[in-house]
């Protein structure tokens, strides 16, 4: 009598080789390279030497500037994630409940900004938010303001741009995570005497929390690592960890410092992931 389950561990290992190779090449190797780079010494101007030093990490943890950058990154990412959640949640809920043949089309519409590069979208925002942009022109035309409001080249512009760039990811992850939500549960709550608001607070919201945690985690990480939007919409005023990595790597040429900041960011991501995993389990109860 043969066991009907394949009992060939060797085969399983062989089959997972491509995946192991892909992860090693695509993630592990670059991270190891980054880790090694972060302990190379540098000389003024960004001259790179091969060797060993902890200088970059000492600078990272002693210069209060990096603490400020980290705080600014966390703040900006949390704000943009929250904004994306507030905008994306109703959209996702609407799409999730939609029983129409247009549903697929509308879902595609919600995620189609992903088809346009972030650079192009950022320039689009400049056109909308700039001093001579649509919003300021409209407000001026309506006589509400006489000087343009600064909506871009500052934190407001970056928050708006980041929120918009996160929105498709938020909507998609919320949609994917709303699986436990059954229309019948809301109807049951209604028949039991719950008003629409209480139904939302007691049934819809708690049941969608796993989706909220999932979407927020993904968006938070994307926001922390985003540098194109802050650069294009920040007017040089919005200094974040990601833009600092970009500047150290591609302007001031201090690769080891850029690598050290990237490693710190990686550590931050691990913390966020673990925290999110815990939270996920708690809200899924």
């Amino acid at each position: 009598m043969a066991d009907d389950r394949p009992s060939q561990p060797g085969l399983a290992a062989t089959l997972s080789l491509p995946a192991i190779a892909a992860v090693s090449l695509g993630f592990l190797l670059p991270v190891l390279w980054l880790a090694r780079m972060s302990v190379n010494p540098t000389e003024p101007g960004g001259v790179l030497r091969e060797g060993w030093t902890a200088n970059q990490y000492v600078e990272l943890f002693t210069d209060s500037f990096y603490a400020e950058l980290t705080l600014a990154s966390l703040q900006m990412s949390a704000t943009a994630t929250l904004c994306a959640l507030l905008v994306g949640y109703p959209i996702a809920l609407f799409l999730y409940r939609l029983e129409s043949r247009w549903k697929t089309l509308l879902v595609l519409l919600a995620i189609c900004p992903l088809l346009v590069s972030g650079v192009v979208r950022a320039y689009g925002w400049i056109v909308i938010l700039g001093d001579a942009g649509w919003i300021n022109s409209m407000l001026r035309g309506a006589g509400l303001i006489d000087r343009p409001i600064r909506l871009v080249n500052n934190h407001i512009g970056v928050t708006i741009g980041l929120t918009e760039s996160l929105l498709p990811y938020m909507t998609l992850s919320l949609l994917a995570g709303l699986g436990r939500l059954d229309r019948g549960l809301e109807e049951a709550a209604r028949t039991l005497g719950a008003s629409p608001l209480r139904t939302f607070l007691r049934i819809t919201l708690p049941l969608s929390l796993p989706a909220v945690v999932l979407g927020s985690t993904i968006c938070f990480m994307l926001a922390v690592s985003a540098f194109v939007t802050p650069r294009l919409l920040g007017g040089g005023r919005v200094l974040l960890l990601a833009t600092e990595i970009y500047e150290q790597a591609l302007v001031t040429l201090n690769w080891p410092l850029a690598a050290a900041i990237a490693m710190a960011l990686l550590a931050l991501f691990s913390v966020v992931l673990v925290a999110s995993g815990r939270l996920q389990r708690r809200v899924a109860e």
């Binding site: 436990r180 059954d182 019948g184 549960l185 109807e187 049951a188 709550a189 209604r190 028949t191 039991l192 005497g193 719950a194 008003s195 629409p196 139904t199 007691r202 049934i203 708690p206 049941l207 109860e285």
Partner: peptide, 28 residues
Amino acid sequence: VHRRNIGMVFQNYALFPHMTVADNVAFG
């Protein structure tokens, strides 16, 4: 709906998965 005072049992029961049996019954 919520002002009608009508009890309804759904085909798939529609029990709230995030609540205990007692909390389900207590909800109304």
